[in-house]
Design a protein around this nucleic acid. Structure first.
Lengths: 214, 214
DNA sequence: GTAATAATAAAACGAACGTTCAATTAATTC
DNA sequence: GAATTAATTGAACGTTCGTTTTATTATTAC
């Protein structure tokens, strides 16, 4: 046999990406075989090589697009004129929403870095660092303005990101807590952690929001 | 050839464990081959099977002993008579010290869970849950006593643990920050996050400590 | 010193891996 | 409707994997 009726390159590629994200998230990149991936898509293993030259190219593509998507999401969500508290609240909301929405892709991007070649690893880490830098800048602004109370900007940024990203480890949609509730609780934990003084307009909003949902 | 001069079962087994933790942490469990591990130990692959019946048995042993070590460490570090703030401070100190000391083993226990068979996965998760339960109990006690301000005990415990464990991702001994500095900063971040009110004896000590080192 | 045992080497097993190649059929173009 | 292009199959390649078996040597016990 050969080309099958109704086959379409774009549809197949999309199906490969989606199946790959799910399989890698569940079993790991090394444990997922190209034959297993092909079976999930409903195709022979050789067909995958029409879309991705190697298995590692596939992994890299998934990771790069995930990181670029995160950057784009933040660029759209970032408030133009806001005090540090408002900026931080927007950052937390965007980060949690994005990561809950793309749990599997996040899992892949966080867990499979060691399967990348050195220069591709560098590319992904560069994207990640750029994104984390935004949070450090917000924390620094807030600290300089006296709005926040942070001992070490870099360390606090890492702690916050790990705390927030960790949500994908235990959060399952439709269980005890809703996304809104989880976000509200993480927002108030974040604000307390950075020692945000209560008073600003955005901040009052944040806390009311949190209290309402908690 | 066969048995080599100076060969000793106990020494070899210890060398296998140590090499396995390092290789799995660096390359991942699936990516590490038994031949690679044997070469690192300075032995043939077949020799490994004298100590661990299968590759997965080796992984499971490393994980189980890591989790049991964590439990033991906390049992020794837990204060007998302390208020919630003192208990929480001890928990944070023990958690960070233990995880920094065993970065590689922690990496293995956190990243390679999916390579375990279902019932072994259950065993490891049971140990982990029991350990996390201790933190939830501390947070609940503190919340009931009015010492802490937490919206959701379970969620806060997960957030704290992920924040603290995340230290192994970026912390490298001998770089900008010392273990003491990092611990102090995480302690004050934790206390702010749980809304610990300032006043208790242990707490004043915590904050002074943090300020000194920051 | 000899017998028993512990520790390892060397070679081999079948299975699975990522990947390639030639053949074949569906869809598109003119 | 013939020619061209796109999409896929099926079989095969060499390599590597975890593991087993058998033989051999070092160490220990008596």
């Amino acid at each position: 046999m050969a080309r099958t009726t109704g086959s379409d390159g774009e549809r197949t590629e999309a199906a490969v990406r989606e199946a790959a994200v799910n399989l890698i998230a569940r079993y790991g990149y090394e444990a997922m075989s190209m034959r297993q991936l092909a079976a999930e898509v409903g195709v022979q293993a050789a067909a995958l090589y029409r879309y991705f030259p190697t298995k590692e190219d596939l992994l890299f593509t998934l990771m790069r697009e995930h990181m670029e998507g995160l950057r784009e999401a933040w660029e759209n969500a970032r408030p133009d004129h806001a005090d540090p508290t408002g900026q931080l609240a927007a950052y937390v909301r965007n980060h949690i929403a994005f990561h809950i929405e793309r749990r599997h892709a996040t899992h892949v991007s966080n867990m499979e870095l060691r399967s990348l070649s050195p220069d591709r690893l560098t590319q992904i880490l560069r994207l990640r660092t750029a994104y984390e830098k935004e949070l450090r800048a917000i924390l620094r602004d807030g600290a300089e303005a006296g709005t926040f109370n942070v001992e070490d900007t870099g360390l606090t940024a890492m702690a916050l990101i790990q705390m927030m990203t960790g949500v994908i480890v235990w959060f399952r949609p439709g269980e005890r807590l809703s996304i809104t509730e989880v976000t509200a609780t993480y927002l108030s934990m974040t604000m307390r952690l950075v020692g945000a003084r209560i008073g600003g307009a955005e901040e009052r909003h944040v806390y009311e929001h949190a209290r309402l949902r908690a």
